[in-house]
């Protein structure tokens, strides 16, 4: 078996090992044994790659906005602005009540 023949069946050899003839070539050929070692090493190192990066916060913002737009979740900013509006109305009503009381006191 020569290098060309060996490398033609290399994917199978890497995955499930070689037959006697292929193993014999591997034992005697530095080029092919280095190649097999490298390919196996690359596959091993790749298995150890772990997720390293978090997505930018704008990804979550985009998800939230889309879900809000589709009406699937409540609109947080709307809720907040509605709350602020309610507080303003309460303040205005309270102020008017205080003014009325003051006017009545002054008239008396």
């Amino acid at each position: 078996m020569n290098c060309s023949e060996f490398q033609r069946v290399l994917p199978e050899i890497i995955e499930s090992g070689g037959n006697q003839e292929q193993e014999a070539h591997l034992a005697n050929c530095t080029v092919c044994s280095d190649l097999v070692r490298d390919l196996r090493y690359i596959a091993e190192v790749a298995k150890l790659l772990v997720p390293m990066e978090d997505p930018d916060p704008r990804v979550w913002d985009g998800i939230e906005k889309t879900l809000e737009r589709e009406g699937l979740i409540k609109r947080k900013h709307m809720t907040r602005s509605a709350g602020r509006m309610t507080a303003r109305i309460v303040m205005m009503v309270a102020s008017m009540a205080v003014l009325q009381c003051l006017q009545q006191v002054l008239r008396a």
């Binding site: 020569n2 060309s4 080029v31 190192v45």
Partner: peptide
């Protein structure tokens, strides 16, 4: 797809040299 022609000196082996 053809056979690799690179001469396999030990310096050519990647093992141990790849970082993430």
């Amino acid at each position: 797809d053809g056979p690799r022609k690179d001469i396999g000196s030990r310096d050519n082996v990647l093992a141990g040299s790849i970082d993430r």
